[in-house]
Nucleic acid binder design. Structure first.
Lengths: 211, 211
DNA sequence: ACTCCGGATAGCCGATCGGATGATGCCCGG
DNA sequence: CCGGGCATCATCCGATCGGCTATCCGGAGT
């Protein structure tokens, strides 16, 4: 058997997308969709059972663990498959998280089918496949230092987006106003902004806050 | 011919989604996909040519006119088809715009296939079909007055999200600082907030600004 | 053991914001 | 033809913000 079929499992909470990818992929001679999953738990079960070569993973699964977490779970299975992230967004936070979780590639859903097929085949061979726009973003972010926002700071950002003042945040978080201001200063530094409005915008863009 | 097939055209810039919907819809006895379009111009051409009963419209088409504008164009054709919006987001602004543009229904992409089929059939019969979550939002928004932000105010919001101060915005827009503050006050009122940070968050949530 | 970092706190101060109030001109739609 | 939304501008003023400097504590890592 020189030419083995590539076994693919789809993980996506949108039935439409699963059907679409299945229709496209199954039409390829060398690619077989051997399973589908709509959430994290299903994904682990299906992958464990079907032992696919490649998992196409959506990042925004409705329920508990997102695509990144699920990627991690799948990659922790014995003889894990390659994971190719196939999603709508290309925010750097998503990409980094996915890559960190063990994803071998990152494609956007608006990619032409050909690109998808090439990505699947490449991923199956162990190559790293990144969508051009994703690769660009990665390089940009690689150049600038990684801004890690602490949990407490995220808390501050949340209240910030609700339009609370420092005094109100302080009351809400049971700390002094000085502490809030301290956190804010750190946030500004990390996000590269110098105003509350800019911080909120950047936080949402960086997916630190969910819109 | 008592039971005429329902002719459907798909408009979506994601090949995967088109393939998915086509696979699902074509598998139904009474539904036929008679055309696809990836952008606004294609959509108008395909609809004019194929005269479908229903158009499944994605709201976020990459290029020029979005789904709402395209809906308007399609509805302005002679003997226009019903338009069923099928998209990822359910922001109230999107829904209102689409309905205003002449859409007969609004479904989310994570809807189960059955719901999609029922929606297509209902739409073809001239019914109005709304996803439950969309209907809920609509009612919520219907209770509160519609916040229409003027173009100039959007301009202000854009600069706001960039973290500019009033003085800087004034310079940027070639108006006085007083004017900027005036706009801001109006924005606050319309968005129901009272801080810049809150305005940015709400504007993004309402999709007035693109994250 | 020592250092680094996140978290919490404090005070100072100039710059800025946001609310209130009022006014002008334009253009659209009823 | 008048009202109303939009855009423009002006002042006043109290509240808030953001930058700066410094201190303290506890846990993680070297």
């Amino acid at each position: 058997m020189v030419e083995q079929h590539i076994r693919v499992v789809l993980v996506d909470d949108h039935p439409v997308v699963r059907a679409g990818v299945r229709a496209l992929v199954d039409a390829q001679d060398d690619l077989d969709v051997v399973g589908e999953a709509a959430d994290s738990a299903q994904a682990v079960a299906v992958v464990a059972e079907t032992k696919p070569d490649v998992v196409l993973m959506d990042l925004s699964l409705g329920d508990g663990p997102g695509g990144a977490g699920t990627t991690r779970l799948v990659r922790d299975l014995p003889s894990p498959p390659q994971v190719l992230v196939l999603t709508t967004y290309d925010t750097e936070a998503d990409v980094l998280e996915a890559v960190d979780a063990g994803a071998a590639g990152y494609l956007l859903k608006d990619a032409p089918p050909d690109e998808l097929f090439r990505a699947i085949r490449g991923t199956a061979r162990g190559e790293t496949v990144l969508a051009p726009s994703v690769a660009t973003r990665l390089l940009q972010r690689a150049a600038s230092p990684a801004p890690k926002v602490s949990p407490r700071e995220v808390e501050i950002l949340r209240l910030l987006a609700k339009g609370l003042g420092n005094k109100e945040m302080a009351r809400e978080l049971l700390v002094s106003e000085a502490t809030v201001k301290s956190h804010l200063s750190h946030i500004y530094t990390k996000l590269g902004v110098d105003t509350r409005a800019g911080a909120v915008a950047t936080a949402i863009e960086r997916r630190i806050l969910r819109p």
